[in-house]
Design a protein around this nucleic acid. Structure first.
Length: 854
RNA sequence: GGGCGCGUAGCUCAGCGGAAGAGCAUCCGCCUUACAAGCGGAGGGUCACAGGUUCGAACCCUGUCGCGCCCA
């Protein structure tokens, strides 16, 4: 045991298997205590910054966060190692509706409503809840290993961010980009607040389509029969010959006795149903527009809870009770012409509580999005902001180019209160703070949409509107990492406000999008389906690194990420593989002292050359946000090249300095993805008290690329693999040594003998079989008369067929004049080489078959 | 209805104009002195279908079928 829990481990302490639980907590505390996560705005180093998509204060870490954070942490950790002044800024949003719901539920358990407390006490109560139970996710982020600058943690309701909200509200208001108007908005009758378009989820639900006779000639079809109480017209298409004579006349609206006009409107689809539609301006957005065009009155028939307020017999009924009641009343009068049940149609639901949204006419605040959305689209169109992958840009354009005005007022108490005051004589004015409002004026009761403050996140968190040094150093942020599902929700809004507030400077240079985490069959995770992965469970059982690697390995840009427990086990195994490789290295004296030796074996040159290719590939893949490829490249370099070949070959010809060098570099390359195990191993390998997270990122060195060494070792690998295949086909035990004569391979003969377990030929050597390898190498083996002739013939016959196929394919191509005339030189040369090699193979195989006898 | 994307090994996915790949799963053989969370070997694909462009197509174009997502 060491005295300090933070001290690096030494070789003798490396356990036989990696135990992540023990290491992770200790490493994280060490990183935080060492100040590695902190960003310095005064630094001369170039800046690299990311703001975290703020999770909800009521939320906990789900697998989607884990994916999002793994990607961001990997990007940030690499840039930090590359010498950038990196800032990854954490925080949360206040989640107006969700948080208010949570606290109201708690109050309800005490038999209280928020109205019993009053606004001020209620908001106080929410803050109290936040202090006690909010932000569980922040602790969970530590378990994942997030290298965020905790000293800069922000919350959308913080004082500074609230000032940002008020400031931008006033600027937009003064510029005429915020207005108040009576419109049809999405209303949640359960949350009792307005919602923006994007807080409404549409689904095809089963309902009913009822056709009602309004007059001798007019029948309308509706899925919402109850709204007929609020009808103020019937509309037909102006060109519809069936109804032309009725336009301008009036009919009597059933059940009400009210007389309503028949109007002609282009918006009516004459092909749908009878071609007549009822018009209810107070309860349908399309009808509202028809009403505007024809100066129709709007009659609201429901209250805020969607309970009928109009007309005696139906008054007090909920909308779903009213519907059958009204249909029954109409049926009693013989006015129901047809009923279709079930009838599938699109229904909007509150994204927070799933209650069916009620379109409602009400007075709300809106952002006029036209010019802002145009600027947000242009920033991507002219290349100032890049969307990765590019294929998702059309979705972004579709959204910003067709954006409706944004309803930003919410009938809640928890949130930023709208900074507008009303005077006694109908004055309306926006003030930056309440002190400026004259005596007797009252402030607007509503608060702003949470997304209004989230849209300011990339600059409000950096101190805006003050010209704070953080803002100067770290804005625009380098990249925004988020799921494609909130491209519209959030990204477009940050673009609008960022460009507006920061004089045309967009909030980030790149938007890197990822997909949703799914199960191993590509199915969406859902509680009802029982396939939800809890990242904390995986971290506990397999380690944070394994969890991160599993997610990163699936993170192809813009694509969904399938994961499974089995794959996470595989990632855990990979971490353990690295652990054991390092353990082997340390047991064999691997070190990082001094420069690389001048004299290197071919095998050393080979692994160093492979390392350079790996570094170059990984760099390219990182720059393209190809995390899945980064993982794939490093996985294969580590497992195949380093463990399966280099370490095995090292057992014969060890070079502790090269082994130490390769592992040192490999651990650095893997650190951004799997920070814990790499740091534990790197500090043990280098005897460093610091951390690999502040070690320099590897740079590919072309001087270490060695094509000849690579070709030489590839040949060695082919020879070993062919002999192993022969041994396996012959059923020879792995431990059984076989005498052999190797011809045509000088340099690596001892290595081949070691890996393929071949002894030198003795006095009585008598070859019973010969293995041939492309390149003119033969290995004659003496299996002491126990050769399985049938197995050997089968093996050779298979090889012969492969060579045969190769030859005929190559000959066919080379016999084609068009190919010879038009194909590039190197393609033709390569094919000729392949043909020659296959022909030589065929000769040797035939000789071997002949020796076997027939 | 409008837009975007996808159909490659049993599963999940790479490859996107010049020899069909990976991980997992399967089969065979191994406790070989870093690792059985391991080692060695093997099997498995008319690259959805039909046309076209090309010397050459999983890859480019057109159409068909099937699936998914977003918007209305």
């Amino acid at each position: 045991m060491t005295d300090s829990p933070l001290a690096p481990q030494t070789s003798s302490e490396l356990a036989a298997a990696y135990q992540p639980g023990e290491v992770e907590h200790r490493r994280y505390e060490h990183w935080v205590a060492s100040g590695y996560f902190g960003a310095d705005a005064k630094s001369d180093k170039p800046a690299y910054s990311i703001v975290i998509p703020p999770p909800n204060v009521t939320g906990s870490l789900h697998v989607g966060h884990a994916l999002d954070h793994t990607i961001q942490d990997a990007l940030v950790r690499r840039k930090r190692m590359q010498g950038f002044e990196t800032l990854w800024l954490p925080g949360m949003d206040h989640a107006g509706i969700a948080t208010q719901n949570v606290v109201e539920r708690k109050l309800a358990a005490e038999g209280l409503s928020r109205h019993d407390l009053g606004r001020e006490a209620f908001v106080e109560r929410v803050w109290q809840w936040k202090a006690e139970s909010g932000g569980a996710i922040l602790g969970q982020m530590r378990r994942l290993g997030d290298s965020v600058d905790w000293s800069r943690e922000r919350f959308t309701m913080d004082e500074g961010l609230s000032v940002a909200v008020q400031t931008i509200f006033k600027r937009l208001y003064d510029d005429g980009l915020i207005y108040r108007a009576e419109r049809i908005i999405n209303w949640c009758p359960r949350c009792l607040t307005a919602l923006s378009d994007i807080e409404v989820e549409h689904s095809d639900d089963e309902g009913e389509l009822v056709s009602i006779r309004y007059s001798d000639e007019i029948v309308v079809a509706t899925t919402r029969a109850e709204t007929m109480l609020g009808d103020t017209a019937v509309a037909v298409h102006p060109d519809d010959e069936r109804y032309k004579h009725l336009v301008g006349t009036e009919i009597e609206l059933p059940l009400t006795g009210r007389r309503i006009p028949v109007v002609a409107d282009e918006h009516v689809d004459p092909m749908f149903g009878t071609g007549c539609v009822k018009v209810t301006p107070a309860h349908d957005p399309n009808d509202f527009e028809i009403g505007q065009r024809h100066n129709l009155p709007s009659i609201a028939i429901m209250d805020e809870r969607a309970v009928i307020t109009a007309h005696g017999p139906f008054q007090g009924l909920d909308r779903y009770e009213a519907r059958p009641a009204i249909v029954a009343a109409l049926r009693a009068q013989g006015l129901i012409v047809a009923e279709k049940r079930p009838y599938l149609h699109a229904v909007g639901h509150c994204s927070r509580c799933k209650t069916t949204v009620e379109p409602r006419l009400s007075l709300q605040w809106f952002v006029k999005t036209g010019p802002l959305a145009k600027a947000a689209g242009d920033a991507v169109r002219d290349g100032r902001v890049r969307i990765e992958p590019e294929s998702l840009a059309p979705r972004y354009f579709a959204w910003v180019d067709n954006m409706h005005d944004w309803c930003i007022s919410r009938q809640l108490w928890w949130g930023h209160r709208i900074p507008v005051w009303y005077g006694p004589n109908g004055e309306v004015e926006c003030f930056l703070d309440s002190g400026q409002a004259p005596q007797g004026w009252v402030q607007d009761e509503d608060v702003l949409d949470t997304w209004f403050s989230s849209a300011l996140w990339p600059f409000s968190t950096l101190g805006w509107p003050d010209p704070h040094e953080d803002l100067l150093k770290f804005y625009p942020t380098s990249v925004l990492v988020t799921g494609y599902d909130i491209l519209f929700f959030w990204v477009a809004r940050m673009m609008m406000f960022g460009l507006y507030a920061m004089n045309g400077k967009p909030p980030f240079e790149v938007v890197a999008l990822h997909g949703m985490v799914r199960d191993q069959f590509g199915k969406k995770m859902s509680k009802s389906f029982g396939n939800v992965v809890d990242p904390l469970d995986w971290i506990g059982r397999f380690g944070a690194d394994a969890t991160r690697f599993t997610l990163a390995k699936g993170a192809n840009p813009g694509a969904d990420v399938p994961v499974s427990e089995e794959w996470c086990q595989g990632s855990r195994n990979f971490c353990n593989k690295l652990w054991n490789a390092t353990r082997f290295a340390l047991l064999n004296g691997a070190h990082v002292d001094g420069p690389l030796p001048g004299e290197l074996s071919t095998v050393d040159k080979w692994i160093l050359s492979r390392l350079q290719h790996t570094i170059a590939e990984v760099d390219e893949q990182f720059e393209a946000f190809e995390l899945a490829k980064v993982c794939d490249t490093l996985f294969h370099f580590a497992w195949d090249d380093v463990c399966d070949w280099y370490i095995e070959l090292s057992k014969t010809a060890p070079n502790p300095r090269v082994l130490g060098y390769v592992l040192d570099q490999l651990l650095r390359l893997l650190h951004p993805i799997i920070p814990f195990v790499t740091d534990e191993l790197w500090t043990a390998l280098t005897k460093s008290p610091g951390s690999v997270m502040v070690a320099e990122w590897p740079k590919a060195d072309s001087a270490l690329v060695d094509d000849a060494a690579e070709a030489s070792v590839e040949l060695l690998q082919r020879v070993v693999t062919e002999v192993r295949r022969f041994r396996s086909d012959q059923g020879l035990k792995p431990g059984q040594r076989v005498a052999a004569v190797i011809a045509g391979l000088i340099e690596h003969e001892p290595l081949v003998r070691s890996l393929a377990r071949l002894d030198e030929a003795g006095e009585q050597f008598s070859a019973t079989a010969t293995v041939t390898i492309a390149g003119g190498i033969t290995v004659a083996l003496d299996t002491r008369g126990s050769i399985d002739v049938a197995a050997e013939r089968a093996r050779l016959t298979k090889d012969r067929a492969a060579a045969d196929k190769e030859i005929s394919q190559a000959e066919a191509k080379l016999g084609n004049d068009g190919f010879l005339a038009k194909a590039p030189e190197q393609v033709v040369v390569k094919l000729r080489d392949r043909l020659a090699a296959a022909q030589a193979d065929l000769v040797r195989i035939d000789e071997a078959l002949a020796r076997l006898g027939s």
